[in-house]
Design a protein around this nucleic acid. Structure first.
Ligand SMILES: [Mn+2]
Ligand SMILES: [Mn+2]
Ligand SMILES: [Zn+2]
Ligand SMILES: [Zn+2]
Lengths: 140, 140
DNA sequence: TTCTAGTTTATAATTATTCTAAACTAGAAA
DNA sequence: TTTCTAGTTTAGAATAATTATAAACTAGAA
């Protein structure tokens, strides 16, 4: 009970800390994204479905888009670009890599230390490296 | 002159070799993609514009989509997935990596030997690795 | 030359995403 | 507490990329 309250307070503080008002909708989305310890990958559509079940009050699709974008900008989510025509997001914000299964279209994490790069090019002059990601495409 | 004819024959043979009829449209698209030695990245839209100039007979957008897909399946093009909401293609089909500039949204090749991986995870059981790509996102 | 499977085309349909502008609300201030 | 307003949510429209449809065309075998 205390734990539950604290979790909710944590979320509220997290939001406030990024200048985001802790609205009912944002709190509910944050619960669905961050309340269990395990991280996962999702799309707007899968998140929307996840929230729609459980008899929650409905959140409009526009709000889900807005909130996921806001959370991404705040650094609570990472956007993963591996797939055509659809954006994937990741609640694992640590630097890491991915398997992308072309059959099932599923992403799986590869721990950062499972990949070692012994040579990496410098950024072109005037530019700096924002991140480096390895994607390993797999299939049956 | 002889060279020109041979180039066109090369294209026709290339297409036939993949079970693709060498139609006027496919030959024109192939010329625009493969006739000069340097490789490049493009989108459907940029390819369409490139062909529309030069006073070529117009090719319908649907045919450009169909042809690019057919060429990709035939292995003449590689699809690059780095960008939200738009597909990029590459006439460089050798294994290589990319810089992606988040400001200009431009792709630049990184030679295969400019990146060295000293450790790579195994594919999950039952799956095999189709390719591995490094994307380095850069910005000002 | 004929014939037909494969191809092209204009256009409609679909899908993901973004925009709009009106209604609502968190929370600071009175 | 109540008032006020900037920030937020919302339904629905708009946009953009892509895919589907189905009628007209054509490469090339026979
Ligand atoms: Mn899209
Ligand atoms: Mn799309
Ligand atoms: Zn991940
Ligand atoms: Zn390339």
């Amino acid at each position: 009970m205390t734990k539950f309250i604290n979790q909710k307070n944590d979320i509220i503080n997290k939001l406030r800390g990024s200048g985001l008002r802790p609205t009912k909708q944002r709190i509910l989305i944050a619960k669905n994204l961050f309340e269990n310890n395990r991280t996962f990958h999702f799309t707007i559509d899968s998140l929307n479905k996840k929230i729609s079940k459980k008899g929650n009050e409905k959140i409009s699709l526009a709000t889900i888009y807005n909130t996921v974008e806001a959370f991404t900008e705040a650094g609570y989510l990472k956007e993963i670009l591996t797939s055509k025509n659809k954006s994937y997001y990741d609640t694992n914000i640590k630097s890491h890599h991915h398997f992308y299964d072309e059959g099932t279209k599923e992403l799986t994490d590869i721990n950062y230390n499972q990949v070692k790069l012994s040579k990496v090019p410098m950024a072109p002059k005037g530019k700096k490296i924002k991140n480096l990601e390895v994607v390993i495409r797999i299939q049956k």
